[in-house]
């Protein structure tokens, strides 16, 4: 069964009052099966974050439909955990308070929240700063805190917008392990990243987005080839983008 289904999505931004419209997505269709890891790659400005915002009802498509678990997006938010591109958390709260907020907002009981919080913060390596205010966090720490915020309520669909950005090698490994363990628990993971080696290692499906259109989707067989080194994701990526540049 498909967890996420986008059909024929188009999205334009009105940049300013009198400026002309910006086309962000054109006729994008994709579907993500439940229990798989789906990777979205593409050059800057390709429309990756736009796609993700559509999944969260933060933006709405001009045309086309977005379905999660066959429901319209605003009805399925409870099942989603989301990490934004540059998570800006509340300045004056402590990590603990932020996570309690996440727990209460998703209807968890206080005792559960405490337990989950302790477990998660330990996983992402923030257990020693639980009581510190988020203002004092570094970029990577904020990224990790954002991950806790996204995962606290045990969502069945995890959407991550560049989860590795700003993380040290240990942090990257931590995120990779986290994604794999989530997958093991049967969650669906949809994420985008510029770090192709991670994408290659983690994903069951990979799509390349360029100028708002899907220009290539790798099948599971191709991904096996990638992992065996018979194909190189980076050359494939550059190749497909350049080829489509000529078209455009």
């Amino acid at each position: 069964m498909s967890k996420i289904k986008l059909s024929k999505i188009s999205k334009t931004y009105k940049a300013g009052l009198f400026k002309k419209k910006v086309r962000a997505l054109t006729d994008l269709s994709l579907s993500v099966d439940a229990g798989t890891v789906y990777g979205l790659i593409g050059p800057n400005g390709a429309g990756k974050s736009t796609t993700i915002r559509l999944l969260l009802n933060l933006s709405r498509p001009d045309r086309g439909t977005v379905r999660i678990d066959a429901l319209p997006v605003h009805e399925s938010l409870g099942a989603i955990g989301y990490l934004p591109e540059n998570p800006y958390l509340y300045d004056h709260l402590t990590l603990k308070e932020l996570l309690f907020f996440a727990g209460r907002a998703t209807g968890l009981a206080t005792s559960d929240i405490r337990q989950l919080m302790e477990h998660l913060t330990a996983t992402v390596g923030l257990d020693h700063v639980r009581g510190k205010s988020l203002r004092t966090f570094s970029k990577g720490m904020r990224q990790r805190a954002g991950l806790c915020f996204a995962l606290l309520h045990d969502p069945s669909l995890v959407i991550l917008d560049e989860p590795m950005s700003g993380l040290d090698p240990l942090g990257r490994k931590m995120v990779c392990d986290l994604i794999l363990s989530l997958k093991k628990q049967g969650k669906t993971i949809f994420f985008c990243s510029h770090i192709l080696s991670d994408i290659e290692r983690l994903c069951d499906r990979i799509a390349v987005l360029h100028q708002g259109q899907m220009v290539r989707e790798f099948t599971p067989d191709e991904i096996t080839e990638l992992r065996q080194g018979k194909m190189d994701l980076e050359t494939e990526f550059i190749d497909v983008v350049e080829r489509n540049e000529v078209h455009a």
Binding site: H74, L77, Y88, A102, A105
Partner: peptide, 14 residues
Amino acid sequence: DKKTIHLVLSKPFS
């Protein structure tokens, strides 16, 4: 302004 709201609205808030 700072897009913290992205975080908040990703929880099941109407």
